[in-house]
Design a protein around this nucleic acid. Structure first.
Lengths: 338, 338
DNA sequence: AAAATGAACGTTAGCGTTAACGTTAACCAG
DNA sequence: CTGGTTAACGTTAACGCTAACGTTCATTTT
């Protein structure tokens, strides 16, 4: 039962230090108006009393906060962890704290989070992607708070936007596959509508094959609990259904699951089947056969996005929308078809 | 320039609805004291005006919040994402919001986060592990806020504790290795002091081998940017330095890096070398050769921890410390030595 | 009919902090 | 010694909301 007595407030510190409340406030905040001698004395007493300022009172008084709200689809996987890392580093060094939430790919969950977050008067809000409830957009447009949409790209963001063009990424993969002579493409993803960006990449891929070859892109969308298993199961499904000569995956982890499926079935890659991942994840760095994938500059994206948002918060004019470059990394899991 | 005008406050809603501020407050909070008819009318107007309550003012008035602060070492990897998932689900359904932060394994960063967080008057605080700055412990003990330490285990937590005994986990791995006849063990980890839990597992492993065989456990601790690469590089280092017959890893991802290193060098597992991971990660579900590893019930741990903390918050008596079971999963990367 | 009830609503007094402003004393040039 | 400047404080009024208590008035009870 050690934890009992009421926490000290600024008034208590002031009383104990024989100064006014304001001197304590100034000392704590490190602003002008107290002599160095008194400041040290006050800080010593505050520490002794384990005084902790009340941020609610502060934010109420100054009508703002140094919180940045960040909404992500999920914590699973490296992708959002990388973006997050870039953002957080930038915000931290600018004196902002970030509060993070995941939507598990549900726009409804996103809306309820936006509502909760807005009630805390944050300095800025970051959403992942462009797929929001109409009310989310209304709320955010009506509020004076700067909003960043990250990871995806559009010319008409809620406020500002930093990300990559996923449709274009799909086209790049398609171009690569077509130029290597592949003819029977397939795609492994999560259930439709779950990950809108992946759906856009598939659309880009589809359009290239439709135009260049007049071919359909088959797709498998199993629900398998984790990316590796999804890749494995989706590959099995596609191999059972037909005879694709190249399979593209939502990301490198799924692609690895696909590789394992091929290995199990005695198929050799890239002789029997081409494999293309996405995102150039850490896993790929130790694979004996270099994976064909697309590099996305996620950390840079986080830093860029955060920087843009900070500029916006500080009233500095910023570009509405900033696309980041993509690069297809040819590996040893695809090769020119004879 | 759509975003301009001041957000509405409760007073504005009251004026527009021709009722008192209190009626609006009651309507919004869904408590008794307003007729159904008025409540609907008020809510309609509030929605029209895009009214968002001010949580700072609310928390200041009621002197509490429904925030739970969660501190994790990192967002990288499945481990903390799993624990987090379990916790968040539990808190969400109990009406609490969680604010998450990562320390990147730095107790100093943890302390500064604890200070920041305390200023928001959270309902509870969760720290990962037991390795804190003395001042962190002082601050938390002095505050009336319930504290949960998760992932590691001790009989003398700051407040309450839910986790696994990492030293014991190391012993289990040691017992397995000894009983299979392995004699030249090694361990791949991150730099010492970085991950205290991993250091404890290594200590458990060391003690078993010292007692049973009088043998040292070699260790490699490369800094390679990601787990897979760390496993790969650490394995290379150990194979160059001596001739271990079994290598244990900080986690399954490192173990996979190790497997890739062996494959590259033409070593076969488990004939030439035993490989042991930790945490039974998703990756392992698609490997052709089942990995010897230790199962940790991370999601359950999150749920259990959150439940215990909620009980503590609601004044229900709880056990100080709750250890979760461990299970060594024998795989095909270790086998009895002749 | 008077009195008692209770639901529906309003009024008041904070919650802990800071911005804005007022006061005081010390200092300095002329 | 005057008048003016400035550093170092203190005082007060918000900030937006809610708990606790008051008031009103239509019902019911006696």
């Amino acid at each position: 039962m050690t934890k009992k007595r009421q926490p000290a407030k600024i008034e208590d510190v002031a009383a104990r230090a024989n100064v006014s409340i304001m001197s304590v406030s100034r000392a704590i905040r490190g602003v002008d108006g107290v002599s160095e001698k008194k400041r040290r004395e006050i800080l010593r007493i505050a520490r002794e009393m384990k005084y902790v300022p009340n941020s609610n009172a502060r934010s109420l008084a100054v009508a703002n906060s140094n919180l940045i709200g960040i909404s992500l689809p999920t914590f699973a996987g490296e992708v959002f962890a990388d973006i997050l890392n870039g953002m957080r580093r930038t915000f931290d060094s600018a004196g902002y704290s970030s509060v993070i939430d995941t939507t598990e790919y549900s726009p409804e969950a996103e809306l309820s989070w936006v509502r909760r977050l807005l009630s805390w008067q944050p300095a800025g809000i970051i959403l992942t992607g462009l797929d929001h409830q109409p009310e989310t957009v209304d709320l955010l447009r009506a509020s004076p708070i700067p909003v960043l949409e990250i990871w995806d790209h559009t010319d008409t963001p809620i406020d500002i936007c930093v990300g990559i063009d996923h449709y274009r990424a799909g086209q790049m993969i398609g171009d690569h596959a077509v130029s290597f002579g592949y003819r029977r493409p397939a795609f492994v993803s999560t259930p439709r509508g779950h990950d809108t960006r992946a759906d856009n990449r598939l659309a880009g891929l589809r359009d290239v094959f439709a135009r260049e070859r007049g071919t359909e892109v088959l797709s498998a969308r199993p629900q398998s609990g984790n990316s590796f298993a999804t890749g494995f199961d989706g590959t099995a499904e596609l191999l059972d259904a037909g005879a694709p000569d190249i399979i593209c995956y939502l990301n490198d982890h799924m692609a690895f699951g696909g590789l394992m499926c091929c290995q199990m079935r005695g198929l050799s890659v890239p002789q029997d089947l081409g494999i293309v991942g996405f995102n150039q994840l850490d896993l790929a760095s130790v694979l004996p056969r270099k994976l064909t994938t697309v590099r996305t500059l996620r950390r840079l994206m986080g830093i860029t996005g955060a920087t843009q948002l900070l500029a916006r918060i500080n009233g500095v004019p910023t570009e509405k929308s900033k696309p980041l470059p993509l690069e297809l990394i040819p590996g040893e899991t695809t090769r020119a078809q004879i």
